[in-house]
Design a protein around this nucleic acid. Structure first.
Length: 115
DNA sequence: TTGTTGACCTCTT
DNA sequence: CAAGAGGCCAACA
């Protein structure tokens, strides 16, 4: 199913996809942006995540990283180490602010949520 | 309404 | 191989 950002709020869209990320899996901003139809505008995803702090239910923003698997958004969490801590609970190994075997834990909304 | 900003991605130098 | 600049779309002032 394809979301229609025109009919729904962009943030709502991003939050919905992020919440659908299975435990122990991660995805990238670009993948979400592409799935939403915004294409290369992956920055919008990050913008939406910025508003995901006081959102309910909780949005696993720690499962969303950049294309290289680096925790670029960790600075925006409550604590710089919170993101890595949360990922560690998901059995995801983070080394030097970067997810180990990122491809292995990568979760593509296109493949899981159907295109 | 226009301009700036932003947790990014990709090409070019 | 490393660094810089441009591009994408949406929200905020």
């Amino acid at each position: 199913m394809q979301y229609t950002p025109k009919t729904k709020d962009f943030f709502q869209n991003v939050f919905d996809v992020v919440r659908l990320i299975p435990k122990g899996r991660v995805t990238s901003y670009g993948a979400i942006a592409k799935y939403l139809g915004t294409g290369g505008s992956s920055r919008m995803v990050g913008w939406a995540m910025n508003a995901s702090h006081g959102v309910k239910p909780k949005v696993p923003a720690h499962r969303v990283v950049n294309r290289n698997g680096m925790l670029s958004g960790k600075a925006h969490f409550a604590t710089p180490t919170l993101m890595q801590e949360l990922l560690a609970k998901e059995k995801i190994i983070v080394k030097n602010e970067t997810i180990v075997d990122f491809e292995k834990h990568f979760w593509d909304p296109y493949l899981e949520l159907d295109v």
